[in-house]
Computed example of a mutant assay.
Amino acid sequence: MIDVRGLRDGSADGPAEVAAALGRAAREVGFMYVTGTGIPPDLCTDLLAVTERFFALPYETKMATYIGRSRNHRGYVPEGEEVFADGGKDHKEAFDLGRDLPADDPDYLAGNPMLGPNQWPDLPGFREVVSAYYSAVFDLGCQLLRGFALALGEPAGFFDRYVTRPPSQLRLIHYPVDPGAEDRPGIGAHTDYECFTILKPTRPGLEARNGAGQWIDVPPLPDTFVLNIGDMLELWTNGEFVATTHRVRKVVEERYSFPLFFSVDYHTPVAPLPRFVSVDRPPRPGLIAGEHLFAQTAQSFGYLKRRLAEGEITLPDGSLALSSFGHTVAK
């Protein structure tokens, strides 16, 4: 449990103390709770209300914003659309969005697969509330990234140059009531592809895998967000931080979940920082942030897999297979 208000309270030693706590949690666990975020509780309440209204719409109405209609991975994700590395499908539906760039944005017109405008449903208040939440949690992500930079022994603004208009994605996820739910080991297990994830869940169900291979509950706690390390911070630290494998177990009660996957700019090269490389610890191969995000996404969503099969799109050179990060190591 880490109070992160010291990242922005103006005190001389606040950022350093928070950074030290973030670094310990990232090295030892990979999952943590954060408090003191500055995000108003009422905004979270409003987000849940408009999300419930959206998912209560008829299927045909939701499919008007089907993600397969977009060229930049934005919109409604019906149940069964997303498939993990083990072939399992979660019993969930989602709505995916990012920074809402204009339709004449140069990167979007050039075919960037992760940047551009959002699809918005015709639902009063939805766009305004979701946009406000995205802005607030993205700002929190910028503060946390500066804290992680300090934790890595770099200046606070070390990563700022890479965060000008990143494809950081917010997902609104709905797990419907499933009275016959049964767990299967590993179903839905994955790591997150970006730097880190800031999560606001409404019900239990999230589990992280520890070094002994056991699944540990990460229940929601009042006035907190869950924060976990993703692939890019694992790579930048050459494995010092680990993108912890996690899943949502099968639950019988209705559940909503709001993860913001905080990324860096699409064309950012990500490779181990020199301080984490040694003779005994050779550098892992680098990657391009957005290409990794797109490749992992394209291998897990049905509509993109169909486009791959038809030759409409191709994976970037050197793309990794799904779940190439997050190997647990007993400590």
Score class of each variant (00 low, 15 high):
157 G>S: 10
212 A>V: 07
248 V>Y: 06
74 R>E: 02
103 A>R: 14
112 N>P: 11
142 C>K: 15
215 W>C: 06
23 G>R: 09
331 K>F: 12
134 Y>I: 11
7 L>G: 01
8 R>C: 10
264 V>E: 00
218 V>C: 04
112 N>L: 11
199 L>T: 01
83 V>E: 14
308 L>H: 04
218 V>S: 01
134 Y>H: 13
271 A>P: 05
108 Y>D: 08
221 L>E: 15
123 L>Q: 01
197 T>M: 03
75 G>C: 02
53 R>P: 00
229 I>Q: 01
180 G>F: 09
40 P>H: 06
133 Y>S: 07
320 L>T: 11
321 A>R: 14
230 G>P: 02
253 E>I: 07
182 E>R: 15
60 E>G: 12
113 P>V: 05
193 Y>E: 13
248 V>W: 05
108 Y>S: 10
182 E>Q: 15
200 K>T: 08
307 R>T: 08
212 A>N: 13
162 Y>H: 15
78 P>C: 07
78 P>K: 06
59 Y>I: 13
87 G>K: 09
175 Y>A: 10
217 D>Y: 09
69 R>H: 15
171 R>K: 14
65 T>R: 10
54 F>N: 01
228 N>S: 03
142 C>H: 14
282 P>F: 06
25 A>W: 04
213 G>T: 11
209 R>Y: 09
60 E>D: 15
202 T>Q: 08
255 R>T: 10
267 H>G: 14
19 A>K: 02
286 G>L: 06
136 A>D: 05
31 F>H: 03
85 A>V: 12
282 P>A: 08
7 L>F: 03
212 A>Y: 11
319 S>Q: 07
308 L>K: 04
90 D>W: 06
228 N>C: 04
44 C>T: 12
5 R>D: 13
250 K>L: 08
149 A>V: 05
81 E>I: 08
285 P>C: 06
199 L>P: 00
237 T>L: 03
263 S>A: 15
17 E>S: 12
207 E>R: 05
174 H>N: 11
74 R>P: 00
96 D>M: 07
141 G>M: 02
233 L>A: 03
209 R>V: 13
256 Y>E: 10
29 V>H: 13
193 Y>S: 14
111 G>S: 05
302 G>E: 13
40 P>Y: 05
22 L>G: 00
178 D>K: 13
13 D>V: 12
312 E>V: 14
38 G>P: 05
262 F>H: 01
207 E>N: 05
135 S>A: 15
66 Y>L: 11
224 T>W: 08
59 Y>M: 11
175 Y>Q: 12
163 V>D: 02
177 V>C: 10
226 V>F: 02
12 A>V: 14
129 V>K: 09
258 F>D: 02
286 G>R: 05
157 G>V: 12
39 I>D: 01
196 F>N: 00
127 R>F: 04
194 E>N: 15
175 Y>F: 12
32 M>F: 08
314 T>P: 01
35 T>F: 03
268 T>I: 02
280 D>R: 14
19 A>E: 04
229 I>F: 00
284 R>K: 15
212 A>S: 14
51 T>I: 07
330 A>C: 12
102 P>T: 09
266 Y>S: 10
74 R>Y: 01
57 L>M: 15
300 S>A: 13
44 C>R: 14
71 R>Q: 14
77 V>P: 02
47 L>I: 08
264 V>K: 00
118 N>L: 03
113 P>W: 04
249 R>S: 09
230 G>W: 01
149 A>W: 04
246 H>L: 03
133 Y>K: 04
191 T>I: 09
19 A>L: 06
204 P>T: 08
4 V>L: 07
231 D>I: 00
